[in-house]
Design a protein around this nucleic acid. Sequence first.
DNA 1: ACGATACGATACGGTACCGTACCGTAGCTA
DNA 2: TAGCTACGGTACGGTACCGTATCGTATCGT
Lengths: 197, 197
Amino acid sequence: MSTKITLPEAAEKPLDERVRRSRYAVLGATAELLVERGLGGASVDEIVRRSGVAKTTIYRHWSTREDLLRDACRTLSTPLDTPDSGSLEGDLMVLMVRLARLLKSARWPSVLPSIVDAGERDANVAAMQAQHQAGYSEPLAAVIRRAMTRGELPKDTDAAVLVAMLTGALFYRRWFSREPVTDAFAKQVVRRALRSN
Amino acid sequence: MSTKITLPEAAEKPLDERVRRSRYAVLGATAELLVERGLGGASVDEIVRRSGVAKTTIYRHWSTREDLLRDACRTLSTPLDTPDSGSLEGDLMVLMVRLARLLKSARWPSVLPSIVDAGERDANVAAMQAQHQAGYSEPLAAVIRRAMTRGELPKDTDAAVLVAMLTGALFYRRWFSREPVTDAFAKQVVRRALRSN
DNA sequence: ACGATACGATACGGTACCGTACCGTAGCTA
DNA sequence: TAGCTACGGTACGGTACCGTATCGTATCGT
């Protein structure tokens, strides 16, 4: 009857040390493999080799390979918080430069194409990925909305269009044209997006 | 000594009818599979099943699976020509709407994520893909350059930035945010990109 | 009509992969 | 310290895949 946490059973158990170790090693190795070789390269046998954990044990913790990959993916994303520099241009500069750097260095971007590809033919993956993507576009949308209430942007501005142009420009360079994504480029995009608004 | 065509041996031979049929069937089935299931789904065995051509025969014409996939990919792209409506906005509207429709209907976009993913870990694929991508961005760049000589855009405009924002906005919606890519959206992007220039 | 050549069918070797069964052993917690 | 529980190793069944070998047959061009 304790009304502590009626949500899921978050951290209920003390948790056997061996379990903790195994899970940690497996998730770590899986994340590495995802980054290096994408979804297709993260085979269970390879995870066994790299983590040093027996296949039997892996299947004691995750009932299927996909379960494991899902869990491992969650460890890869880098959250993006919402700045408040006082001006729209300032906020966008910060966010876009941060995004540009994430695209060059972070682990998630190197897995993303696999996910997008899988999503092309699997609605569950697509939904999960779109939701994850929203985590990155939301800060941009937030500073844009704030600028609208401030009067920095016209009230009828379509935030989604602006977000697509900003984020899209970076993504386009990273994966499609394969040109470098520099800080300077990110800043140019912001300046052009804000011309006379 | 006939100076007809000194280039490669384009269409030199009469070509056995059986060969023509086999190649045609195999390339067709492969293209279908690429569109439906991506690179990974186009296995040789499946191509055999769908084309009705024996595996032996396939390997008589292509020495490896990758050779075959390369050939099949070439049949999938839809060329984009350069319009001349008289104004930059008109040209961009035409191009962007055309691109938006291609993204919804054409065959190539459904294979592209596979290619991008492969390119992430294979420089050859990456180069091929970037070159292919240039085929789509070049018309945009062309009308932009023309507008600069006309004085519709300042001389110091960076065409690459503009191209990335325009194309990127569409691609972003198609693959990352997974929101619809409508004609109206494409037009909004163009209008916003040209604000006060 | 005939000879060269392309074809189909089948079988195979080798690899990689997923997931399970079994069994003996190590390590944690109480 | 005693017993529960997680672990490692191996072996396995089943599938999918690539590419080759072999051999008899059909079809094309001349």
